[in-house]
Amino acid sequence: MTASDCVLRTDGLGKRYRRTWALRDCTLALPTGRVIALVGPNGAGKSTLLRLTVGLLAPTTGTVEVLGESPTTNTPQVLSRVGFLAQDHPLYRHFTVADLLRFGRSCNLRFDQGLAERRLSQLGIPLDRKAGALSGGQQSQVALALALAKRPDLLVLDEPMASLDPVARLEFLQVLMGAVAADGITVLFSSHVVPELERVCDHLVLLNHSRVTLAGDIETLLTEHRLLVGPRTTTDLDRAGTVVEATHSDRQTTLLVRDGGAPTAPHWQAHPIGLEDLVLAYLRRPAPHGAALPVDVAEVPA
């Protein structure tokens, strides 16, 4: 990937809080024009990676480049092209929606207030209402409208739907996907809810134990991986290092392999694997040797 079609590039990126590594050895190149899901359990380092991306944190090791520039040194140039929505979509509760829009316009180099007003009126959200008096779903829509009003090239969202009910989640995704269709925005968002990702995302980054364990185009990942079911085998499992996970019953062995569809041995049956099962299999893998991480790495407070 050349610099221009790469929205986020990290090289050996790491962040340490006192003695605990929240993120280690993170090397990524994420393509533009995609909807990228950052998936991992609580404490895996998702928020840390997102905050490094938008320049809210400085790396302990390695480098991060957003839209070809460092978010901590070229701040105004980069940040005017990046929208960020922190966890629980924080708003100033005592500001009216109109105040928030005015505030957004004064604080940004680029801000399309008319666009935000149109979006919010389509959703029936009154501009004279105080943010604190809106429902959770409406607050998330106001926060999203503010972020989209910047007309960002990259929109970074930290657990955007975690606190929303199913109807509000759907409405949030409808607006988000509509913006992607209309403006070709690249979206990077973290989530630990896998089932709804498949219809929304086309690129995946999996974080576990503070490290990237899987990253790539989702369709490619799904064709590279498959489940092999056959007679119980416990020896010679790690053929060429393609076995991701092995489970055994009395007579059968099930292997999740990443072999790109090599011919199956006799008595073995190959099955395709879904995104959710693939993600779960990778999340079940133990931490690599030598990582020596405490289990309760605290998630960065939003």
Binding site: L170, Q174, V175, M177, G178, V180, A181, R199, V200, D202
Partner: peptide, 15 residues
Amino acid sequence: LIREAVETLAINPNT
């Protein structure tokens, strides 16, 4: 239109 389908289904436009 792609945009109409996307906004009804909350689905990725590339899909």
